[in-house]
Design a protein around this nucleic acid. Structure first.
Lengths: 210, 210
DNA sequence: ACGCCAATAGCATGAATATGCTATTGACAA
DNA sequence: TTGTCAATAGCATATTCATGCTATTGGCGT
């Protein structure tokens, strides 16, 4: 039986192109192409594709969400992210979401074909730049990992925020005034580009800045 | 000037073969081959090779140690691990040690050449099986799941809390009243045994309940 | 038909948080 | 020596949050 492929991408021209090209390959069959992941769960349940080509930036339900949805629904589906170069945070989320490969959109069609063959044989196709970034995530002391230039004190305060301490408790533990705590948190928010504690906690945990 | 390469491998026959083959490639020059990493620091200081081909299993000072030594001595050296399939722990150590690539010994010489070209162009060559294992390191272990008996709505609200939405925004997105949002959050706190939003976010992310 | 519970909604209130300013001190680099 | 910056601290204020109650509705299982 043919290898079935589903395509998620909000660019309809690209979807068409990929559908035609992939459909023309011996042994491949495109079982559907979609502009976002809103119906992903149902689509995967119905078609059970072997491989999913997944864009990231899509309206409503994006590719990161889609990845999670599909992997939850049917973990054995091979998902190849196919997107422009995204920020490290998104790449990280893709990796943690269980993506089976990550190919940049500026790669040739041949590379995409190779990537599909690769996952089908148990490999993990990564564009060179992506592979490099992936390795950089492992470096404890590295320039690729997200660094927000928090001071020691700010990191300490952030740690308490993650623990759910109130400002008052933080002030007590750090032996500083409530207003100083406020000051540090103000700076933390500014550096992390967030504007409430919960968002700061999310960023701290996701980006591992403890 | 030629790209200079140093080879560390305890198999003398393989060292010879690689030296001859690589030395025969236009633009490459092997500046030395060694049976372990005991003298690695001195060797790198003296020869300053562009690329190091590094075996792992070697007597006395192995490739993992060698990797650390060389990266400490001269971080800009590209190091390609070249070894049989090792256990995950060693792979992890290589990644954290700053290896620039990881090629299995059962790969063809052509693949090794491609790998060298790849690192020289800022990529990160990984054998398919290795790439797959690398991606697996990112998979969070998710046995927990549904342990807190949150309802669908509560899970949805929690998701927004993680995103840092205010109650008002959540109410808007869910098309329910502010007071209902409060009610859900009240229940979420109770079920998660927390008493503020930041703590709930921490628990949600750490326990993977999204 | 009955009870259970999720989802909805309202009201009230004190505590906590977010954010607008300013200002001093000490360390360290240009 | 001057300038930058982290750490400290204060004040004011508007908003948000946490939590105490109660109450209606619709679904689901027995």
């Amino acid at each position: 039986m043919a290898t079935t492929i589903a395509i998620f991408d909000d660019n309809s021209r690209l979807r068409e192109t990929l559908t035609v090209l992939l459909g023309g390959v011996e042994g491949y069959s495109v079982c559907g192409d979609y502009e976002n992941c809103a119906q992903a769960a149902g689509i995967i349940k119905q078609h059970r594709p072997d491989v999913v080509i997944m864009d990231i930036d899509m309206p409503d339900v994006d590719g990161i969400e889609g990845l999670r949805i599909i992997k939850e629904q049917r973990p054995e589906t091979y998902i190849i992210m196919h997107t422009v170069l995204e920020d490290d945070d998104r790449l990280f989320q893709c990796l943690c979401g269980g993506a089976n490969g990550y190919i940049l959109k500026n790669s040739s069609f041949v590379h995409l074909l190779e990537a599909i063959e690769n996952v089908l044989h148990g490999g993990a196709p990564l564009s060179p730049i992506i592979a490099k970034k992936v390795l950089q995530f492992f470096r404890p002391t590295n320039p690729g990992r997200l660094q927000y230039h928090l001071s020691d004190r700010e990191r300490e305060v952030l740690k308490y925020l993650v623990k759910g301490f109130s400002y008052k408790m933080i002030a007590g533990h750090c032996h500083i005034s409530l207003d100083t705590v406020r000051g540090h948190i103000r700076n933390i928010y500014s550096k992390l580009h967030v504007n409430c504690g919960r968002e700061a906690v999310t960023k701290a945990l996701r980006d591992n800045i403890l």
